[in-house]
């Protein structure tokens, strides 16, 4: 058992996994999640998927968000269901699951010929995606809470030439640290 604990923790490096809302404190989350499958099962929008062996032995069977299947409307059902408190109370106005990040290589609007795609800009429920001077999407980090709606509707894999990758042009990426109000504006400015 001791060996198993050590091996699981250190030999199979754990990749950052996008957790359901309230599970952003990874140390607390991994200490308390008993892999019971209730949060995945209850999610009405099906955005909670299950991590598998590719995410590391430690993460296997734990919940992870998959915004290809749905987005999060912060209904809190997963938090209500979690029997061990691995998912804590979550405030979508102050915290984030993780910020959305635009991949300019993949984004239709960022292509040299200009794509004019406005899907995520129009779709964002929190008005967290604005346009730059050339009408391309920019994520406002102080408004984004990582609900994943932009990733859910992003058509980059459908409209562009099939490149064999699953990743979409705008993704909510794990391991970007906690949301700190105020300091995000500068970061957003730097990115655009």
């Amino acid at each position: 058992m001791l060996a198993l604990g050590g091996v699981a923790k250190y030999a199979f490096g754990d990749t950052p996994v996008l957790r359901p809302p309230g599970g952003q404190d990874e140390k607390h989350f991994i200490a308390t999640c008993i892999k019971c499958d209730r949060c995945r099962g209850v999610c009405p929008l099906n955005c909670i998927s299950v991590a598998n062996m590719n995410d590391g032995l430690l993460n296997a069977r734990t919940p992870k968000l998959d915004y290809h299947l749905g987005y999060c409307d912060f209904c809190d059902l997963c938090i209500q269901c979690c029997p061990t408190g691995a998912l804590k109370d979550f405030d979508p106005d102050k915290e984030w699951v993780a910020p959305a990040v635009i991949d300019r290589e993949l984004c239709i609007a960022y292509q040299p010929m200009g794509g004019g795609c406005m899907k995520c800009i129009d779709g964002c429920p929190y008005d967290a995606i604005t346009t730059d001077t050339q009408g391309r999407p920019v994520v406002e980090l102080d408004k984004c809470n990582g609900c994943g709606y932009c990733e859910y509707i992003c058509p980059s894999n459908s409209y562009r030439v099939f490149s064999g990758i699953r990743k979409r042009a705008i993704t909510v990426e794990a391991d970007r640290g906690p949301r700190i109000a105020g300091s995000q504006q500068a970061q957003a400015g730097g990115a655009s």
Partner: peptide, 27 residues
């Protein structure tokens, strides 16, 4: 179906649920 009754690790309805006693001790 999206009911979230769970598995034998924890099974129940919303906040009212059975929990695996070993799992609970471990957490």
């Amino acid at each position: 179906v999206n009911v979230g009754t769970g598995t034998l690790s924890s099974m129940g309805w919303e906040a009212i649920a059975y929990i695996c006693p070993l799992g609970a001790l471990e957490t």
